[in-house]
Design a protein around this nucleic acid. Structure first.
Lengths: 250, 250
DNA sequence: CGCCGATTTGAAATTTATCAAAGTTTGTGG
DNA sequence: CCACAAACTTTGATAAATTTCAAATCGGCG
């Protein structure tokens, strides 16, 4: 189901940014801002569907599009010469995707639809024009960029220094937190269409090993993941395993 | 020695950004842009020195500063509960640092001076004001954010899917490429004040293991690193090991 | 039903970390 | 300028974690 563009999903949070830009923190979420200011109908009018497995990056087209993901899951990944794949980030409804390519067209990562997805295509000229006049929007785009960097940084830390069990726990909690921001997660779990193999490629593990990690999490009574559903069994234990603090996401 | 703020260090590159924002790609490098537009003297007037090892993040101050690094090396890192450290990125002269904190104050990474460093303190109010009126500057800040994300993404890929030798080769080449952009690297190598332990913490290895990796690179006649100096012995072999393509940096 | 992709399990091989200790360099104070 | 301490580098031996290989099971779907 598409991310509901009509219903606000604000969360409590402190206002920030000193001086002239005092705005509600969660209002910075680009999807919320676009929806609430009506900007969607200005420069993200066109809806598109990409089928499961299709690539959003067209090698031969020099100027990529950016999209607001409104339904379904996508991911950015890189392929190595030896055929292995590293997934850099998963994208869920409400995420702004493909923007980086506009400024760094030669980046060698790919963007791919994991499920079939629905997007709103961003009109770049319109966005640029809007950025000039709209401080909140400009801040929001910048915030989106910084948030993505924070997320990728956390993944880096996880892969570099967390043991697989803790890494996996952190991964599932982060995903849950991100989904909750757009109304797709609950306190007890969330729907997750990823395969073990995909997650393993994000966590820097083999699929076989990740499968054993999942068993550990199950046997610890921390959480389960099967049939496309993540279920927290003991949220506190899971957060302790993950050493998780969601503040970088909000 | 400080990054020379008076001498342009442009590199050849294609112009990009369609329509109204056709500018030279390397002109997007924030340090070059700031220097060339005189913006430095508007909102980055104040010079500061941080001594080796000192922290640029002050936990108790809510609103961080951003800086343009003009001399010396710094790094951003995260500490885990078990005391291990993951270095997320090293920063070299010309890098804009600390900006992310302005929008995501709760990010849990730290910024630290590796050598003693010289910075220009960014006046945020001034920067925000300038962003409104100056498209190039706004694009440049956004470019800086995206470039950082691209760099961190590459690190993620390296740690997740590259073998230590290849990962190290990639690391050294990337650093060399970044340094060359600001005139601090040559075709044959560069000065590098990092310790093996620091680099190991960036590559997700133990210092002991990284030491053995360095030996491998030496015995392959690919490169050496000692006495604070990186020397390429066989650039082609090194690039092949690393599977390195610098286009994401430019 | 039979196929294909995804998941699960076991055993062996490989990689990487850990532990311990010896060199080496660097900086500091006398 | 030397002595000394601290930090960094190097090496070896061992332990632990992770991958690889192989095979069995499961589930949806034409």
């Amino acid at each position: 189901m598409p991310y509901d563009l009509s219903a606000p999903v604000y969360k409590p949070g402190s206002s920030f940014l000193s001086a002239d830009l005092r705005i509600h923190r969660s209002a910075l979420h680009i999807a919320h801002l676009l929806r609430d200011t009506g900007a969607l109908d200005t420069f993200a009018v066109h809806r598109r569907i990409f089928t499961k497995g299709s690539d959003l990056i067209h090698e031969n087209r020099q100027w990529q599009n950016a999209y607001l993901l409104t339904a379904g899951w996508a991911c950015s990944y890189m392929l190595l010469r030896d055929g292995t794949r590293q997934i850099i980030n998963f994208h869920v409804p409400g995420d702004l995707i493909g923007i980086r390519r506009l400024l760094i067209p030669d980046a060698d990562d790919n963007l791919c639809a994991i499920t079939s997805i629905e997007v709103r295509e961003i009109d770049i000229e319109g966005l640029l024009a809007a950025l000039r006049g709209n401080n909140c929007l400009a801040m929001s785009v910048l915030w989106s960029a910084f948030r993505d960097e924070a997320i990728v940084s956390q993944h880096l830390v996880g892969i570099g220094r967390r043991r697989p069990v803790n890494r996996a726990a952190h991964f599932f909690l982060e995903l849950g937190s991100r989904l909750s921001l757009v109304g797709l997660g609950t306190k007890t779990g969330y729907q997750c269409p990823l395969t073990q193999s995909l997650i393993a490629d994000a966590l820097g593990l083999t699929a076989v090993h990740f499968n054993r990690v999942l068993r550990q999490l199950r046997e610890l009574n921390a959480m389960t993941f099967h049939d496309g559903w993540v279920q927290y069994l003991d949220g506190e234990k899971l957060e302790h395993l993950a050493d998780f603090d969601s503040s970088y996401l909000q």
